[in-house]
């Protein structure tokens, strides 16, 4: 399917429900009636091209629109990534945790394996949370400030000082691989644990972990291949516009 501005938003979702994730993260409310993609975007104040680039990538999975996405204001992407974060923290992660707790209560195994998995997952949650906290509390505000100050004739003196001593490249080096532990969890469940008595529950936990893993993967692609290169570009422009004397 080729996603075009004139197609109905409801048809778009019906033909690929995975796109619901994109709609949710752009905070597009439901109740589309017969409105087109273009009309819904206009109503919600979302740039049509930005929406189309994201939706086409999620749907076609073919060519990553890195360059094209970089041509939009960085704050749009930050907003998108932020709603993705809250989706993980408020919904996906607690849900998986809850399901592992449920498995633990039905686990009859001798070694209390599910208790182990729960402990492992909780370790993951705390790593994950601090990873996201760093981005939310330091990285994103820096990026938004950078973009905003670049528009001004005179940058905020406090920010100017900060910008001269910092670059997003440092962050990229520390950008820890947040998927690794999740992949381990998945492999242990899949390869080394006999399913506990409630099979349906076990399968569902696996499905959710796979989903989250894939989603995190996309998230990392957006951060490392669009957000950071775009910020590096902004930093260059910033230092050109406000050179050291």
């Amino acid at each position: 399917m080729h996603i075009s501005p004139s197609m109905k938003m409801s048809d778009l979702v019906q033909s690929d429900f995975e796109l619901l994730a994109v709609l949710q993260r752009l905070k597009i409310p439901f109740g589309f009636k017969d409105k087109s993609v273009k009309a819904v975007c206009e109503e919600q104040g979302i740039d049509l091209d930005f929406f189309l680039n994201l939706a086409r990538w999620y749907h076609e999975r073919d060519f990553f629109p890195g360059e094209t996405l970089m041509n939009h204001p960085v704050k749009w992407l930050v907003k998108y990534l932020r709603s993705t974060h809250s989706c993980y923290i408020d919904y996906h992660i607690p849900r998986i945790e809850h399901e592992i707790i449920q498995m633990e209560t039905v686990d009859q195994s001798e070694g209390h394996n599910m208790q182990l998995m729960l402990k492992f997952f909780r370790e993951y949650i705390s790593e994950f949370t601090s990873h996201i906290q760093l981005e939310e509390e330091q990285i994103f505000p820096y990026i938004l400030n950078l973009e905003e100050n670049l528009q001004r004739d005179q940058p905020d003196p406090g920010f100017l000082e900060k910008a001269r001593g910092y670059t997003i490249r440092d962050f990229l080096e520390d950008h820890s691989d947040i998927e690794e532990k999740l992949v381990d969890l998945r492999n242990i469940l899949l390869k080394y644990l006999a399913p506990p008595s409630d099979n349906c529950l076990f399968t569902n936990v696996l499905i959710e972990i796979f989903r989250l893993g894939n989603d995190l993967n996309d998230h990392t692609i957006l951060e490392e291949n669009v957000l950071i290169p775009q910020v590096i570009r902004l930093e260059e422009e910033f230092h050109k516009k406000f050179p050291r004397k």
Binding site: E123, E180, K181, D184, L185, N187, K191, Y192
Partner: peptide, 18 residues
């Protein structure tokens, strides 16, 4: 061989397998 990368993952494997 195990498809497990992190130390905590390896620890879980070692516990499960005695």
């Amino acid at each position: 061989k195990l498809d497990i990368k992190t130390v905590s993952g390896l620890t879980v494997y070692a516990l499960i397998n005695g």
